[in-house]
Structure formats: structure tokens, C-alpha cells
Deep mutational scan, measured.
Amino acid sequence: ITGDVSAANKDAIRKQMDAAASKGDVETYRKLKAKLKGIR
């Protein structure tokens, strides 16, 4: 179950990262990237 949750989280975070990148929001992008590392 835990694996599914983190996989879903990663997917959601990647989508947020894409949105931040397209807006040029480097700050948010970095925060999300750090979150991704924390999940692993």
C-alpha cells in the first residue's frame, strides 16, 4: 500500500513540477524536487 501512495505522490509532484517549470517558477520547482527526493 505504501508503494502505491508514494507512486501517486510522485506523479502528482511531477505534474506540479511541470506546471512550475512552464511558469518559470524556479523556487517551487526546487521545493518539489526536494520533496521527490524525500519520498524515495
Rank of each mutant, 00 (worst) to 15 (best):
Asp18Met: 14
Tyr29His: 02
Tyr29Asp: 01
Ile1Trp: 14
Asn9Ser: 12
Val26Cys: 15
Ser6Trp: 10
Glu27Ser: 02
Leu36Met: 03
Ser22Thr: 06
Asn9Cys: 15
Ala12Met: 11
Ile1Arg: 05
Met17Thr: 00
Ala21Tyr: 14
Ala21Thr: 04
Thr28Trp: 04
Lys35Ile: 15
Gly3Glu: 09
Ala20Arg: 00
Lys15Ile: 07
Ala21Pro: 00
Arg40Thr: 14
Gly24Met: 03
Val5Asn: 12
Thr2Arg: 10
Ile39Asp: 06
Ile1Cys: 04
Lys37Pro: 04
Glu27Phe: 03
Asp4Phe: 08
Asp25Phe: 00
Lys10Ile: 15
Asp25Asn: 02
Lys31Ser: 03
Gln16Pro: 02
Asp18Cys: 08
Ala34Asp: 12
Arg30Glu: 14
Ala34Thr: 05
Leu36Tyr: 04
Leu36Gly: 01
Arg40Ser: 14
Leu36Val: 01
Asn9Gln: 11
Lys31Thr: 05
Ala7Gln: 11
Thr2Ala: 09
Ala12Thr: 10
Ala19Arg: 06
Ala34Ser: 06
Thr2Asp: 13
Lys31Phe: 04
Lys10Thr: 14
Lys31Gln: 05
Val5His: 09
Gly3Trp: 06
Lys31His: 04
Lys31Ile: 06
Arg30Ile: 09
Lys31Trp: 04
Ile13Met: 03
Lys33Gln: 12
Val5Tyr: 09
Gly3Thr: 09
Lys10Ser: 08
Ser6Glu: 13
Gly3Gln: 12
Gln16Cys: 03
Asp4Met: 11
Ile39Ala: 05
Leu32Ala: 00
Ile13Leu: 08
Asp11Glu: 11
Val5Phe: 10
Met17Tyr: 02
Glu27Trp: 03
Glu27Asp: 08
Leu32Asn: 02
Glu27Gln: 05
Lys33Met: 13
Val5Gln: 11
Gly24Ala: 03
Ala7His: 11
Lys37Ser: 10
Lys37Arg: 08
Gly3Val: 12
Ser6Leu: 12
Ile1Leu: 10
Gln16Thr: 01
Ala7Leu: 12
Ala20Leu: 01
Gly24Phe: 04
Val5Cys: 13
Arg30Trp: 05
Lys15His: 05
Thr28Ser: 06
Asp25Met: 01
Arg14Gln: 09
Leu32Gly: 01
Ser6Thr: 11
Ala19Pro: 02
Leu36Thr: 02
Gln16Ser: 04
Thr2Gln: 11
Gly3Lys: 11
Ile1Phe: 13
Thr28Asn: 04
Arg40Glu: 14
Lys35Glu: 09
Lys23Thr: 08
Ala19Tyr: 11
Leu36Asn: 02
Lys23Phe: 04
Arg14Phe: 07
Ala8Trp: 10
Lys33Cys: 14
Ala20Glu: 02
Met17Pro: 00
Thr2Gly: 12
Leu36Asp: 02
Ile1Pro: 10
Lys31Pro: 00
